[in-house]
């Protein structure tokens, strides 16, 4: 008889810690935490293989509340620390929790370089368009003209569109979800987990203390279906309460069309998350900036043909060792011209 026993399946509870959660009551971060704790047990990965790395900010307290290996690091540097970890241990499942200030301001450099290298990290960007932990200054995603503690007369900064930035950095997986859309968020996290290489997920998150209602036009029950379009690979871009609106390609422009009166689903743009050209993903990313257009959520891009950085590094070491044999320390020390001094 075999003595091996099947491991007990993990549950959400296994990923909860005994630490007192110190986010403000009503913060969108609770919903994200709950979604992650729900999805992790489904992935079939042993708990000890999960590592959550974060930088600084409200969102970066995330690792303390996940009963996995966790590292709360310094402001903006989580992608770089996680890169070192992932290269050294490609077998680990490394997730990064970050915010709009952490990832796009102080850590902008690490973010773009992680994405271009395609390091196998899953990055959750909690975007609340404000600095929360420092109590209410504008962030790199705050809208132009925004009045905050540090911009009493309105912000003069043009904001980043995180999705567009990630696409520009040649990210291989770019997605967006919303804290309160739990089902969509979990689905997005499952897709994120399955991706090899860098996965960048913008999660629109509400800061009810310093930037309440920031995403209200998307999350309010009545407005939701009119202002949000859910992207699904291979399906036409349709939205609206009555599923009667669509997005059509007209030359190099997108346009909103009303279905009916000769306009059918066949005329609409069909979402292709594997589209090889950046222009396609950029068009989707920038759609919301035009008046009258909905905000896209879901997976904007999923390229599955780019090797993960850590795999390239491991493969190169393996190739060199195959070609040259494993390093011999004595040979290394004696390399080049040597001479002997006799007694």
């Amino acid at each position: 008889m075999s003595t091996a026993t099947l491991p007990t399946p993990l549950t959400k509870k296994d990923f909860q810690t005994d630490q007192e959660i110190r986010w403000c009551p009503g913060c969108g971060d609770y919903a994200i935490l709950s979604a992650v704790q729900s999805v992790f047990p489904e992935l079939g990965i042993p708990k000890e293989k999960f590592v959550v790395i974060s930088g600084i900010g409200c969102s970066s307290r995330f690792p303390y509340y996940m009963n996995t290996f966790g590292f709360h690091t310094i402001h903006g540097r989580a992608p770089a620390i996680a890169t070192g970890l992932k290269i050294a241990r490609p077998d680990l499942e490394v997730w990064v929790a970050t915010g709009d200030g952490d990832s796009l301001s102080i850590g902008g450099n690490h973010t773009i370089h992680m994405l271009r290298r395609n390091v196998g990290l899953k990055v959750l960007l909690f975007n609340n368009r404000i600095y929360g932990l420092t109590k209410g200054q504008f962030s790199p995603t705050s809208e132009l003209g925004k009045k905050t503690k540090s911009t009493p007369y309105g912000s003069t900064d043009r904001p980043f569109n995180p999705i567009s930035l990630a696409i520009g950095a040649e990210a291989t997986f770019v997605a967006r979800s919303v804290d309160v859309f739990q089902q969509h968020l979990k689905d997005t996290l499952r897709r994120t987990a399955a991706h090899k290489g860098s996965a960048y997920v913008e999660i629109l998150q509400n800061c009810n203390i310093f930037n309440d209602h920031a995403w209200e036009s998307l999350t309010e029950k009545d407005a939701r279906s009119e202002n949000v379009i859910q992207l699904e690979h291979g399906k036409p871009l349709i939205y609206g309460k009555n599923h009667d609106k669509g997005i059509r390609l007209n030359g190099l422009e997108l346009e909103v069309v009303q279905l009916g009166n000769g306009v059918s689903e066949k005329d609409l743009l069909v979402h292709d998350e594997r589209h090889p050209r950046p222009a396609y993903a950029f068009m989707l990313a920038h759609m919301e900036q035009k008046p009258g257009f909905p905000t896209p959520i879901g997976v904007l891009r999923a390229w599955d043909n780019v090797p993960a950085y850590e795999d390239l590094i491991s493969a190169q070491i393996h190739e060199v060792q195959e070609a040259r044999g494993k390093g011999d320390l004595a040979k290394l020390l004696h390399a080049g011209d040597i001479w002997e001094v006799r007694p």
Partner: peptide, 29 residues
């Protein structure tokens, strides 16, 4: 010295250079 299993990471900046090394140390390297 890749034949010794040495991993060299030319980072995007000095900060990433040290923080990646901290990440690797955390991993047991």
């Amino acid at each position: 010295y890749k034949n010794f299993g040495v991993i060299t990471f030319q980072a995007e900046d000095e900060i990433a250079a040290i923080t990646s090394a901290i990440g690797a140390a955390y991993a047991g390297a």
